[in-house]
């Protein structure tokens, strides 16, 4: 297999609750995958596993050919900061850093801060003039655009977005999503987006539906 993200027969339980019951999935660079499912279907859990934030009970996850199961905490952290861009529903900006600092943040962690790319992202995401502000002074849409810039500034190969527009009104959400898709397409990275909205999912190239811990075709929902 040559796909960038390979998830093979993964299971995960929270306590006695089986959340994922044997999920397999492959995602290559340039692909944009929408993962849909109801609340509690396990889509966020799958997302966290793919982001090396959590480890599966069984099965294997490979990112760029590297098996996450073989890595310790530091190794998983290295994968996160080097290869993955994360966009959260709650934005998760660092409140004590300015917009510019937040955008550059992960790139600096990963040791490949590129001021020109950051500046370009600021411009593309319509954040010009806001660089010196702190997150609390921004609207939700602006905050999420900062988060997207941060997720792209270190040129990740895999972008994971967990309900990126969940905290935004519909118009803002659409605009933000459009920007995200456009930028990801330009970078050629793989994108996996978790959403409960089939309307948004429809805008991505590939769709999978998660139901009671198993994957199926979106139409099976």
């Amino acid at each position: 297999m040559t796909e960038f993200l390979q998830i093979t027969d993964v299971t995960k339980a929270h306590g006695t609750l089986e959340v994922l019951r044997g999920v397999s999935l492959a995602l290559d660079r340039g692909e944009a995958l929408a993962l849909t499912g109801e609340s509690g279907s396990g889509k966020s859990t799958l997302m966290h596993l793919a982001a090396a934030l959590d480890a599966p009970d069984s099965g294997e996850i490979r990112i760029g050919g590297q098996s996450l199961g073989a890595l310790d905490d530091a190794g998983r952290a290295a994968v996160r900061r080097g290869r993955i861009g994360l966009v959260f529903q709650q934005f998760n900006l660092v409140p004590s850093l300015t917009v510019a600092q937040n955008i550059a943040f992960q790139a600096r962690l990963a040791g490949r801060h590129d001021p020109r790319l950051c500046a370009e992202l600021v411009g593309r995401l319509g954040l010009s003039g806001l660089e010196a502000r702190y997150p609390e002074a921004l609207s939700g849409g602006q905050q999420q655009r900062v988060a997207i810039a941060r997720a792209l500034a270190h040129r990740p190969e895999l972008i994971l977005a967990d309900e990126p527009t969940g905290n935004l009104d519909e118009a803002t959400g659409d605009a933000v999503l459009a920007l995200l898709l456009e930028l990801v397409a330009e970078t050629g990275a793989a994108l996996m987006m978790v959403t409960h909205s089939t309307r948004l999912a429809a805008r991505l190239g590939r769709r999978l539906h998660l139901s009671r811990g198993r994957l199926g075709a979106p139409d099976a929902a």
Binding site: A51, L53, D73, A74, A77, A78, V79, R80, R81, G82, I84, L86, F88, N92, L93, V94, P95, S96, F105, Q106, L109, A110, R150
Partner: peptide
């Protein structure tokens, strides 16, 4: 913030 830092790949 610390959680975000860790999520973004800062080793513990």
């Amino acid at each position: 913030t610390m959680r975000t830092l860790r999520a973004l790949g800062l080793p513990l």
